[in-house]
Design a protein around this nucleic acid. Structure first.
Lengths: 301, 301
DNA sequence: TTTAACCTTTGCGTTTTATGCAAAACTATT
DNA sequence: AATAGTTTTGCATAAAACGCAAAGGTTAAA
């Protein structure tokens, strides 16, 4: 019955048999069968449904509440037993924005998996706004603390950015000596939902807010970096993305005396975000501790 | 997993695969298989066992505690849902002492089952001391309040007894005019664990305790009744057992001015006894209420 | 209003799991 | 040492679970 209950919870969570089936790696027909069976065992209707709509019945709500607790208690019991006996196993689904994931997270994974060979990691390098509540993701790595109070976060590292362009670009365009100069340059922008994009710069004397624009936008930093290297324009990217290119002279840092930010309200720091749970998956904790250990002791600073 | 857990709980409760199998209507091999499977799923050993001995491991104890709660919560959830929707179903196992059960409980069962056709009753007419804790019995009907504090009880009826014998017996023996006279009669005794048996008689003026003996003992009253009817001796039996025979003249009540008791400390009243549970089986409550309704309004008084 | 897309349900066949019988293995009691 | 009773194991059968493919139904888009 617990298995059917877990399936039921997933169906309600996703509002769809098909979506739940995907997440559970089951055929939709099997999910349908499981819900039918559960309803038969309970002798009640849990869900009113048509091909496009699911509604929880009153009884279904009662059962959902009760079974959430039951499943949580069961998981806790299992975890408390297995924590004492078994090496960590199971899966972790991680979402991280593309460039950070590729450059900073992926290289750390093999050592983690060597240490815990029974854990599987499924990583998704994706710049879309991930909804931990709505998707089957255990933890996400994102810039800025989430506003959703049901999520917890741990700071991984400070994400200082800097503004830079290629020497070729700079030699062909007006000098960038103060923040306002940026508004007359071709600034390559990380995609944002807002119509107008501003870069924020601070120094010991004042804060600047500059309206910037350009002819290339991207959700991820990689295409912008590539374009900047080829002299297309000015970028504001994370230090860890550009450090090597700056050292090689392929990119030049502008406005060195200023601290730059992509968002007004956000420090731009990198956080690992995960859902609050009374009985959290211990693998999440393992991985977070591992990341923090690495980021606080290795080259990513 | 819940099913395996329930089986595990039964095995621990009975301390034996074989006994648990009997109670669960399963083959012992299936029980073994289930425990094996549970241990495999949990990755721990729950029970250390040989062919004659079961010991719970430390992990097994933890799991037992956790799963008792889990199963209770699950049952409660199921009950709270089914109470709202389904006519009562399931089974009831009842133990009652033989004569009372046959004469007073059995005649009431058909009407109860007609009212609740999805309930099954398994009745055991047995005079042995039943251990509700150790046996798979939902409720028992016995004389006297149980000393086990984990059991709950409801009074069904007062169990007045009377002392009587057949006219034939009385005509061949000395008159019984006061309690002490009983000690020189052949008293047919309900079996008791004590070596010596006393009958207790009270009237408005004094209490009498009479040592009695005879050449017939029985756990149940029926053989004694039969023997008394055939003139073998004197019996002290419940009113409801003898009323019809007294009316017919086949038995004569002796010492009519005295109230008689089989035990010093017990009123001799009949109680229905059941195990305390945070989430009791509603069928138990249904049946108890039905019995009380019947006993308080019908011929058994 | 019609069509297409997508979801749930159902028929069916295959795979997996559960179950019990019977016998083997083991241990405690007599 | 033999017996009785319990657990375990091999094996065959029955039951349940599962997924494929198609049908049925509903909603959104054209």
């Amino acid at each position: 019955m617990l298995k059917l209950t877990r399936i039921f919870i997933k169906v309600v969570e996703f509002g769809s048999f098909s979506k739940a089936a995907k997440v559970l790696n089951m055929a939709p027909s099997s999910v349908t069968r499981c819900i039918d069976k559960l309803e038969s065992e309970l002798g009640i209707t849990l869900l009113k449904r048509s091909t496009r709509q699911l509604l929880l019945t009153d009884k279904g709500t009662i059962f959902l509440n009760g079974s959430n607790k039951l499943v949580a208690d069961s998981d806790y019991l299992l975890m408390s037993l297995s924590n004492q006996n078994m090496e960590p196993e199971g899966s972790l689904r991680i979402s991280t924005f593309e460039s950070f994931g590729r450059l900073n997270i992926c290289p750390l994974i093999p050592e983690f998996l060597a240490r815990y060979p029974k854990i599987n990691i499924e990583i998704e390098l994706d710049n879309k706004m991930v909804d931990l509540g709505g998707e089957n993701i255990d933890l996400a790595i994102r810039i800025g603390i989430p506003e959703d109070s049901s999520l917890k976060s741990r700071k991984l590292l400070s994400n200082h950015t800097c503004i830079c362009a290629s020497p070729g670009y700079l030699s062909k365009h007006d000098n960038i000596e103060q923040p306002q100069d940026l508004s007359s340059h071709n600034c390559l922008l990380l995609n944002q939902q807002r119509q107008r994009t501003y870069w924020y710069l601070n120094n010991s004397q004042r804060n600047a807010k500059v309206h910037v624009s350009g002819n290339l936008k991207s959700k991820g930093g990689t295409p912008l970096l590539e374009a900047a290297l080829q002299g297309l324009g000015v970028v504001q990217l994370a230090n860890w993305m550009v450090t090597d290119f700056v050292k090689r002279g392929d990119l030049v840092v502008c406005l060195k005396d200023w601290d730059s930010f992509l968002n007004e309200s956000s420090s731009g720091n990198v956080y690992v975000i995960y859902k609050h749970s009374p009985y959290p998956n211990p693998n999440i904790r393992l991985f977070i501790d591992y990341l923090i250990d690495k980021t606080h002791n290795q080259k990513i600073k």
